[in-house]
Design a protein around this nucleic acid. Sequence first.
DNA 1: GTAATTGGTAACTATATGGTTACCAGTAAC
DNA 2: GTTACTGGTAACCATATAGTTACCAATTAC
Lengths: 117, 117
Amino acid sequence: MVTSNRRLDLTFAALADPTRRAILARLARGDATVGDLARPFRVSRPAISKHLRVLERARLVRRTREGRVSRCALDAAAMRSAAEWIERYRAFWMGRLDDLKRYVEQSPTTHTTKERS
Amino acid sequence: MVTSNRRLDLTFAALADPTRRAILARLARGDATVGDLARPFRVSRPAISKHLRVLERARLVRRTREGRVSRCALDAAAMRSAAEWIERYRAFWMGRLDDLKRYVEQSPTTHTTKERS
DNA sequence: GTAATTGGTAACTATATGGTTACCAGTAAC
DNA sequence: GTTACTGGTAACCATATAGTTACCAATTAC
């Protein structure tokens, strides 16, 4: 299983913070400026700016400057990758252990013996 | 959207490390001892022990001591929760933006105005 | 009983994270 | 051209993370 994936590291790390998940939830309702995103939170603007940088590095959010305003939008690709990784365990958590073993053992191209990057 | 969820924090943080993802991938093939898990990696046993503690705190792995051997097994619940959270964005990454907006705006019980714990 | 094995803990280090305040650059408004 | 606003950067702090080596406890094997 391709477990060494810098992109996946960044994505999951970005999702591990409640403020960042709230930002993503907000962006799911539509694009927003940095100010819009910061308003509901008790944290300072620089803190939000840092969170946005984390989300950008993880390619979960795209930021474009329009004049003096920054517009933020969801970016789908990274979240899809994260979902796909987790999805591999669906058989397990649904109790279909045999399915999972078969998946893991019969998909050599999606696995690697070198498990660290 | 319920974005403040300590359990999700722990789960996504646990998934953000390639060694831990490799451990989970190994456990998907069946239970294993700590030694089994440590063998493929270049890192020391204590490092693996720490990773396992992170995975346990996130409830992704269960550890049971049998004599002097520790047996580790996947635990499904936490990964399912993570998948469910990400799943909400499926409509977005599939380009069905209207669906997502409708979902986000019409599910008041699954959202909260206080976005931090 | 002694020795070997498993694996956990302690103590330490280096780096990353999340937050702050203070400040600056650029744009928009008047 | 000032003034006000948006938002990014710098410098700093506290805490968490990922790793190390050294050591210990308990179980198993001889």
